[in-house]
């Protein structure tokens, strides 16, 4: 057993002359949630299909838990649970029947099928609906059945393709909680184009654009590298020069939406000082928040950079904050 659950190197995929994935590397370790991020049509789904053996790469190597997916597909596939964009559900089976079938397909030994089904139902909150027909369930429950299907054989790697699409906010929260829970035992790869999703569940992010990796980093590093900037809004804002004079402020920027962005020297905490000054000088502080790890900024930069190469950087910043 290696600690590196997935290792893909130099993946290429052509659809005719169109190149969907180009020289993509990807790796996943135990206990990690990797967020595969990219705009629509960036090659995320193709990549996941290749990792799960649903699509043969035009070139490249994939190892799953030490087994080569292309040479030994049946051995390697044992370690994968996959939820495609459209969950592969048989609508005419009950949840329990369906999960039992999935367990058997994934070579769960006969004696353990029952307990595997029970466990998957419990984890995904399906106990109350386990005897209902899948076709009669709501979208949120169907999505959970899809996830239950992916984890039933306790695979080392769980691959989820846009698991929260089409769900209501409450269901999204539940699914995210479930993903975090799963990450403690399994490695999870998640594709999405929703930025907050990555921020809330992933430990590492890889941004894909036009089939190439354009950015890859640990989220903890992102946080550490975050500028520590503060966004403030005043009803009676002082002059920019006044703010510039405040202790620890390196840079002041008035944003188009009325927020003032203050960047500190070397990660000093600004919020407290600003609040005190605002009260003392009657600036009437309305809002004060610390800027999050600037994933959105990075995403906008790397993805829209080429498209908006001509326009000034302020334009991209506006988009990032809108």
């Amino acid at each position: 057993m290696t600690d590196e659950l997935v290792k893909a190197e130099g993946l290429y995929r052509y659809y005719g002359p169109h190149c969907a994935v180009a020289n993509l590397d990807l790796s996943l370790h135990r206990g990690e949630v990797l967020g595969l991020l990219g705009p629509n049509g960036a090659g995320k789904s193709s990549t996941l299909q290749m990792l799960t053996g649903n699509l043969a790469p035009s070139a490249g190597r994939i190892r799953i838990n030490g087994e080569d997916l292309l040479d030994e597909p049946r051995k390697a596939k044992r370690h994968i649970g996959y939820l495609p964009e459209q969950p592969p559900l048989y609508r005419d089976l009950t949840v329990r029947e369906y999960l039992r079938y999935c367990a058997r397909l994934h070579a769960v030994p006969g004696r353990e099928v029952q307990s595997a089904v029970d466990q998957a139902c419990a984890r995904c909150g399906l106990k109350t609906v386990s005897r209902r027909l899948i076709g009669h369930l709501s979208k949120g429950y169907q999505q959970r059945v899809g996830i239950a299907q992916a984890i039933i054989h306790r695979p080392a790697v769980i691959v989820l393709d846009e698991p929260t699409v089409g769900l209501d906010p409450l269901q999204i929260q539940e699914i995210r909680r479930l993903i975090q829970e799963l990450a403690s035992e399994h490695g999870v790869i998640l594709s999405t184009h929703i930025l907050p999703e990555v921020q809330s569940v992933c430990s590492r992010v890889q941004i894909v654009h036009h089939g190439r990796t354009v950015f890859s980093a640990l989220l903890s590093e992102l946080d550490r590298n975050a500028s520590g900037a503060v966004l403030a809004r005043f009803a009676n804002p002082p002059a920019v020069e006044v703010l510039q004079q405040l202790e620890g402020v390196r840079e002041v920027e008035v944003l188009a939406d009325g927020h003032i962005r203050l960047v500190p020297h070397a990660k000093m905490a600004l919020a407290e000082g600003i609040a005190e000054q605002a009260v003392a000088h009657g600036w009437r502080l309305q809002e004060l928040l610390t800027e999050q790890a600037n994933l959105e900024r990075i995403f906008t930069d790397v993805v829209y950079h080429e498209r908006n190469a001509a326009t000034a950087p302020e334009a991209t910043q506006e988009k990032a904050l809108s």
Binding site: T52, N54, K77, R78, I80, Q86, P88, Y90, L105
Partner: peptide, 12 residues
């Protein structure tokens, strides 16, 4: 129904 993926992803 796009359920073929289930069989394709299974070790079969």
């Amino acid at each position: 129904r796009q359920t073929l993926v289930l069989l394709r992803s299974a070790p079969l």
